[in-house]
C-alpha cells in the first residue's frame, strides 16, 4: 500500500528547485519512478511530498559536440537515448545498453536521471557511463556542481545527492580515436536485470598498444565497481588473449558481489571474470577498427 503524499508538479526547473528547498527532507523527487513506485507500494518509503520533474522540458535534451562531448538532460527517456542518431553514431555502446535495459514500456517511461539517482547497483547505465568517464551535473536552488559519476555512486541505493539536490545532466566526453567500448550483462532472460554485468572501454595508441582502459562491473558490489588493477595491468600492453584471461581473474577477485537467490557470490565472481575477459577482448577488437 502506498502511503499518502501530496503530488507537486513544478512547471520549471527553477520552481522544482524552490520546492525542493522548501520541503527538504519531507519530499522525494520522481522522474519516471517505476522502481520508486515498487518500493513505495511495499510501504518501504514514506514521503509527504512527491515532486515530479519528468515533464520539465528544460532537462529533456541530447546535445553533442565533438569537443564538448555528449550532454543528456536528466529527464531524457531511455528510449529517446537509444533512438538518438548522434548517440548511435558516437556511442554505440550506450544504445546497446539502453536497448537491453528493460522492456520497451519501461524504456519509454523511465529516464536516465531517475535511473542514476535511484542508485541501484544492478542498474545498467552507471557502469557503462563510468567506463566512458562520464560526469554528472547535479544542482539545488543555490547552484550546481559537477562530479564524476564514479563519485556520484555511493552505496546500495545511495548517491552523492544531498538534500534539495537533483540530477540535471549526464556528460560523456567524446571518445578518443581508436576507442572501443562494450557492455554485457549476464541474465537468463533477454532484457532482464543482470545477475552481473561488465563494461569495458579500451583506447589504443598509434602502435596498437593500450593507451587507456576502464573496466566497470555492475551488480558486483554496493555500487559499480571499477577494477583498477586490471587497468594497470593492461596499460601499455598489446592485444593478448592471455592477458584478458588474467584480467578476468583479477576482476573476479576484486569485485564484491553478494549471494542472493539468483546466484551465489562465488558464481557471480566467476561470471564477472568471464564477462570482463569477453568485454575487454571485444572492446579491444572494436578499438582496432
Amino acid at each position: 500500500m502506498i502511503h499518502d503524499f501530496t503530488y507537486l508538479k513544478p512547471s520549471s526547473l527553477k520552481e522544482a528547485l524552490t520546492m525542493l528547498e522548501e520541503h527538504k527532507d519531507d519530499c522525494k523527487v520522481i522522474c519516471g519512478g517505476q522502481s520508486l513506485l515498487i518500493i513505495m507500494r511495499q510501504g518501504l518509503l514514506v514521503t509527504d511530498y512527491l515532486i515530479d520533474i519528468k515533464h520539465i522540458k528544460e532537462l529533456d535534451y541530447i546535445q553533442f559536440d565533438a569537443k564538448a562531448g555528449l550532454k543528456i538532460g536528466a529527464t531524457t527517456t531511455h528510449h529517446t537515448i537509444e533512438t538518438s542518431d548522434v548517440i548511435k553514431k558516437n556511442y554505440p555502446v550506450l544504445v546497446a545498453m539502453e536497448n537491453k535495459l528493460a522492456s520497451i514500456q519501461v524504456r519509454n517511461w523511465g529516464t536516465i536521471g531517475g535511473n542514476l539517482a535511484h542508485g541501484d547497483p544492478s542498474g545498467d547505465p552507471a557502469s557503462v557511463l563510468i567506463a566512458l568517464k562520464a560526469n554528472i551535473k547535479v544542482g539545488n536552488a543555490k547552484g550546481g556542481r559537477t562530479l564524476t559519476l564514479e563519485d556520484f555512486c555511493v552505496d546500495f541505493f545511495e548517491t552523492a545527492l544531498e538534500e534539495g539536490e537533483i540530477v540535471l545532466e549526464v556528460q560523456v566526453p567524446t571518445p578518443e580515436a581508436k576507442t572501443g567500448a562494450t557492455y554485457q550483462k549476464f541474465n537468463l532472460l533477454e532484457s532482464d536485470q543482470g545477475m552481473v554485468a561488465a563494461a569495458a572501454a579500451v583506447t589504443l595508441n598509434g602502435g596498437g598498444k593500450c593507451k587507456d582502459v576502464r573496466v566497470v562491473l555492475g551488480n558486483a558490489g554496493p555500487k559499480p565497481v571499477r577494477i583498477k588493477r586490471v587497468e594497470e595491468l593492461l596499460r601499455g600492453k598489446g592485444y593478448d588473449e592471455k592477458l584478458f584471461a588474467e584480467a578476468g581473474k583479477i576482476a573476479s577477485e576484486d569485485c564484491e558481489p553478494v549471494t542472493d537467490i539468483h546466484a551465489s557470490e562465488e558464481h557471480r565472481r566467476h561470471l564477472l571474470g568471464v564477462l570482463t575477459k569477453r568485454m575487454l577482448k571485444q572492446a579491444w577488437e572494436q578499438a582496432k577498427g
Binding site: 519512478g33 517505476q34 528510449h79 519501461v106 517511461w109
Partner: peptide
C-alpha cells in the same frame, strides 16, 4: 500496458497524476 501519447507504458507503475 496502455498507450500514453502514443507510447506503450505500463500503467501499474505510473501515477495517474504523472499522466496529467
Amino acid at each position: 500496458t496502455v498507450m500514453l501519447n502514443g507510447m506503450a507504458v505500463k500503467s501499474c507503475s505510473i501515477l495517474a497524476m504523472q499522466a496529467e
